[in-house]
């Protein structure tokens, strides 16, 4: 899975989703994603991460994506 593919996949979370993807090892299977989206509003960190992992469930199960470290947040208002 290429960084761009991952970015597009994660942007599907919601219209105002901002995604930054870093390929940690250059092998396109150890990623860090920094995601800001209003869909995370009112959700615990675990729930936020579970929402993200659900989008790449097959790739993680097949180990195509071996590690996906997440930094999730809600956009600041005003």
């Amino acid at each position: 899975m290429t960084p761009d593919e991952l970015k597009i996949r994660l942007e599907a979370l919601g219209p105002d989703t901002q995604v930054e993807v870093d390929d940690l090892t250059g092998t396109q299977n150890h990623y860090q994603a920094t995601i800001e989206s209003s869909v995370f509003e009112g959700k615990s960190m675990i729930q936020q991460h579970q929402m993200v992992y659900a989008l790449v469930k097959e790739e993680m199960a097949s180990n195509e994506v071996h590690a996906l470290s997440l930094k999730t947040s809600v956009p600041k208002k005003g």
């Binding site: 960190m45 675990i46 991460h49 470290s69 997440l70 930094k71």
Partner: peptide
């Protein structure tokens, strides 16, 4: 209770 993985424990 499930707390989380490495990211969440670090946070």
């Amino acid at each position: 209770q499930f707390i989380g993985g490495c990211d969440i424990v670090m946070d």
